[in-house]
């Protein structure tokens, strides 16, 4: 009986050794639950496209230039199978300055005119990363559909503009659809990518380009149109 027990014990020990060795030699992936995304790009609001406008105020003030918009997005993955799906929340900030124009048409004034926006977006997304993880294809196409709320304000000099009884600040609701493609950086430096995961918990990193179609005008209501068609570029980190 005792010899049987010893034999079983030795057998269990021998079976356990390879398991221990495997844990040491084969790096493991940390769980992947979300992503953090940084992006930036030009944002040109479609203010001049508002119905009923008799002139092009944005163009007259800023010319053809766009605002520089930077955004931070947090994503949470709720499905990981054939691709990844989840919810994302982003916050951004953009501003544009130009000289105000003299009211008598005599040229540029000393005051600076500015438009500032702080777009917030809640979106649902899907990215097809199955091919990247399964077959090593480093490109990951994705799409998003989101609800947008964009606080905005217009200043002249150091204060918010006031015209008659109207103050140049407020917020607009809208929606946005985005399509983009990410390039999986892990393929360039696989070992560095593994270290990034084991040290910081970042599973994958991507560079991406995306195009956004946004209608931000209180769903067709009267007033300012902060919608846009824009390209954005950035860095995404899965964690």
């Amino acid at each position: 009986m005792s010899s049987t027990a010893v034999g079983l014990g030795v057998a269990a020990l021998l079976l356990a050794v390879p398991a221990v060795a495997q844990e040491v030699t084969i790096p493991t992936r940390s769980p992947r639950t979300g992503a953090i995304i940084f992006r930036g790009g030009g944002y040109k609001p479609r203010i001049d496209y508002e119905k009923g406008l008799t002139d092009t105020p944005y163009k007259n003030t800023f010319g053809d230039e766009s605002l520089l918009l930077v955004e931070l997005e947090l994503q949470r993955f709720f499905y990981q199978g054939i691709g990844t799906a989840g919810l994302g929340l982003s916050v951004g900030y953009g501003e544009k300055y130009a000289n105000a124009v003299l009211a008598d048409g005599g040229g540029e004034a000393a005051d600076k005119a500015a438009l500032k926006v702080l777009p917030l977006q809640l979106n649902a997304f899907y990215k097809f990363d199955y091919a990247a993880f399964k077959w090593g294809v480093p490109l990951v196409p994705y799409g998003k559909l989101g609800l947008v709320y964009s606080p905005w304000w217009m200043t002249k000099g150091s204060s918010t503009e006031v015209v008659g009884l109207d103050t140049g600040k407020g917020g607009k609701w809208g929606y946005a659809a985005t399509a983009g493609v990410s390039f999986l950086l892990d393929v360039l430096e696989p070992r560095f990518a593994r270290d990034f995961d084991s040290d910081l918990g970042v599973n994958h990193s991507y560079l991406f380009a995306e195009y956004t179609y946004a209608e931000v005008n209180n769903f067709g209501g009267a007033g300012l149109n902060l919608g846009s068609r824009r390209w954005m570029f950035g860095l995404a980190l899965d964690y």
Binding site: Y58, T61, A103, D166, L224
Partner: peptide, 20 residues
């Protein structure tokens, strides 16, 4: 001297936004 910023220009162009 009176000058026009974006909101002035927008309202001058018959913009309907009331802000506030």
């Amino acid at each position: 001297v009176k000058s026009n910023g974006l909101f002035d220009a927008y309202k001058d162009a018959n913009g309907q936004e009331q802000g506030g």
